[in-house]
Design a protein around this nucleic acid. Structure first.
Lengths: 211, 211
DNA sequence: GGAAAACTTGACTAAATGGTCAAATTACAC
DNA sequence: GTGTAATTTGACCATTTAGTCAAGTTTTCC
């Protein structure tokens, strides 16, 4: 997005490797601390190089941040694009919920990174939200609306349905501290499997076409 | 909690007024920026006094932050404590959801303040989560479990049910930027009323006792 | 093996920011 | 009104941190 100068010189093997290394470290640090509290020194340490060296690969703190966001966005939205219009509605939505919960479990840093960014008012990805994200949501809500029109799903607002699913699934990544505190040390271990059962049970039952 | 020295001298009328004024400004600033990005200069400006003056009323940045959190916590949890064991389960839960959504609409700063704090790992209120909050949740999940045992509610894990409700309702405060971007300028105006309909419809239907 | 390019970093600068303090101003009790 | 306590703040200090740079080291390519 805002990488190289004009003619985009080919990146060396070392550049690719180091940039990936830095992005991994940056995700870890930004997702825990947020943009402002994260420091380049901390990211450099996590990536195993000096701050000056880090700044040889990225133009500045903001450039690192934007790169991490872009690097993670596509991955995070992938499952939504995978909704199959020809599949069974409840199965498709159930699979989407399961996948999103699995992602919250395995890649909580990605979810927290976005949570921090959106909470701060989405200064870096505001355009993305209004553009590509809205487009994807428009497309997939059309699929859901189709299912509703065919009477295979309860009639609810498809956009807000998606938001409910995002809210519930990402909650287990973003607010894990609270989840674990409230569940207590015993139940915290199984939190993701019980969450899956509960969420699937309530949402799928609530979405069944009404007699 | 960590206010005065030993004998707790009586606060003047001016002190009470100024502290309230500062807390209001601090909520606005902390909730948007998070702890680290918020500056005392910004809070002082918002409160209409100098930074030095602000520090006459509070021991330091952290003291202001803790005071704001404490000031907001009880208010935020109030509706949960109001669940009536003798009421109709679906009505009680529906009222809880409606109240929480209403709070997200009217006091989004409070929700965002907690979201930032929990995302950062709850450094300031970790003890509160494990203590008073967990106790309240334990008490109210017992109420819900009672309803389930009586067959008046679908059998779901009551703790995760509460988390679903928190997730969905607070989402509309914490992620409002995303919500508005995805809904588009037209639908954003009515977002809270459509959210209420959708959330109530899906969750209450999903919680009806199963035949 | 040598030169050029790519890479690395310690030392530095400038800006932001939490916090201190002494001096000035205001509020209040009598 | 006068004196004391409460309040206010400009000026200042110390620390943190993003970003620069020149001087070195390593890699690459012939």
């Amino acid at each position: 997005m805002l990488d190289k100068g004009v003619p985009a010189p080919k990146p060396t093997r070392i550049q690719a490797a180091k940039r990936a290394q830095i992005l991994k470290a940056a995700l870890a640090v930004f997702s825990i601390a947020g943009y402002r509290a994260a420091t380049l020194d901390r990211i450099a340490e996590e990536a195993g190089l000096s701050k000056a060296s880090l700044l040889y690969y990225f133009a500045g703190k903001e450039a690192v941040y934007v790169a991490v966001l872009e690097d993670t966005l596509a991955f995070w939205l992938e499952p939504l694009a995978a909704l199959d219009p020809d599949g069974d509605p409840l199965e498709e939505i159930g699979r989407y919920i399961t996948t999103k919960l699995e992602m919250s479990k395995k890649r909580p840093a990605a979810s927290r990174l976005f949570a921090n960014e959106i909470l701060a008012g989405a200064p870096a990805i505001g355009r993305f939200l209004e553009g590509p994200l809205k487009d994807l949501v428009d497309r997939q809500t059309a699929v859901i609306s189709g299912w509703i029109d065919e009477g295979r799903l309860a009639p609810v607002d498809p956009r807000h349905l998606l938001m409910m699913i995002w809210a519930v699934t990402q909650h287990y990544a973003d607010f894990d501290t609270q989840v674990q505190a409230v569940l207590g040390p015993g139940a915290a271990r199984k939190r993701f499997s019980v969450a899956r059962e509960t969420v699937l049970s309530v949402l799928l039952e609530g979405l069944k076409p009404r007699g």
